[in-house]
Computed example of a mutant assay.
Amino acid sequence: MTDASASSPRRPGEQALAALGLAAPALSPTDASGRCFPDGGTWRTEVPSVEGPEALDVVLKESAQLDVPIHRISQGSGVWMLTDTEITDMVDACAERDIELCLFTGPRGTWDIGASTRTESGGGGLRARGHDAVAGSLEDAVRATGLGVKCLLVADEGVLWSLHRLRSAGVIPADTTFKVSALIGPVNPASYAVFEQLGADSINIPSDLTLAHLTEIRRVSAAPMDLYIEAPDDLGGYVRMYEAAELIRRGAPIYLKFGLSKSPGIYPYGAQLRDRTLDTARERVRRGRLALDLLARHGADGGMSPLGSRLPGSLNRFTVSPSTEKD
């Protein structure tokens, strides 16, 4: 495919509006990201909230039927909510199709005994409360990577830095990637750059950031961006499909996440949520097909990374103390 930044996609309603004398101002080339993944692509795809082998099977079958390319599949309940056999089954199924599997590291503040997360302020949110929660997250990481998982979802800055140090020391594989959760996602370029320095390989920004905010972030950081083009209700329920081409132009390298609004939460997943989880997994793939069709209609579907691509390229990091590096 060709690089989307080099093409001239049609903007939504462009000809119709021009006929009415309402043509939009020309796009400024200074707004464009100008960055890409190491494979030369500007965008990849992700299906989130795939909570176990059964949901994964639904996603894989639906993506084959609807011809939806998938680079990454992520899970939100956590490593600790899966058995070794379930993790291995998911690893094997994704490996067969050259898809990156990302599992959440766990304990997190919203599920422990801390009452502040239930106040109007939200307290510390998903962050790991206390030493034991950090230890549990690292335990999840060691266990998951030992079973073949190559991507870990993180919702705490201290956990992220600790995992990056473990990666630098060789405790977990060097090609493990860390993805920052949307629920602690940065909202300005300075904080985005800090997450990159702490070891993040892709960073989920909140879906309510403006196009100008994406441009501001891209001026300071090359770390891949994750963005729900349809956000779950607990993240605002925003639907930004018609902006997909411009999100790519400004945010590249970017993962387009196919979320689902107007749908109840499913974390932490269990059998009591089976039907809802399978139905929403299927619909997320369909939403992906709608987004890809829209890009194609606008001539903006070029520049997708080759399937199987997962690494972020060279990124800026804080210096890791030699005492934590492998001898």
Rank of each mutant, 00 (worst) to 15 (best):
Y192M: 04
G259I: 04
W161F: 13
G136P: 03
E62D: 14
A4P: 11
A200D: 13
A223C: 02
E86N: 11
E243P: 02
R240W: 15
R240C: 07
G41F: 08
E246R: 00
V320M: 09
T45S: 08
L290K: 11
A291G: 11
L56Q: 03
G13W: 05
A200K: 03
L211W: 02
E139N: 13
D98E: 15
L278W: 08
T30W: 13
E283I: 15
L166A: 03
A26N: 07
V187T: 06
I254D: 04
G146A: 13
L209P: 02
L294A: 12
Y255N: 05
S263I: 03
L163K: 00
D31H: 14
I248H: 06
V79F: 07
G265E: 11
F258R: 00
Q15V: 05
A4F: 06
V149M: 10
F258A: 05
A115S: 15
M90R: 00
L153C: 09
S162A: 15
K150S: 06
T277K: 03
A26G: 11
A222W: 10
G303S: 02
T45N: 03
V50H: 00
R310C: 05
S137K: 03
E51Q: 11
S77A: 08
Y269P: 03
W43A: 01
R72L: 10
G40R: 04
L160W: 12
R310Q: 14
P186L: 09
R10F: 03
G13Y: 09
G146L: 00
G236C: 01
D140V: 01
T88P: 09
L183F: 14
V142A: 04
L147F: 06
A23N: 05
R282Q: 13
D208V: 10
R143M: 05
S121W: 12
S309I: 00
L214F: 13
C151D: 11
S323M: 10
L17A: 12
P306Q: 11
D140Q: 06
S121G: 05
D301V: 00
S221D: 10
H164Y: 10
W80C: 12
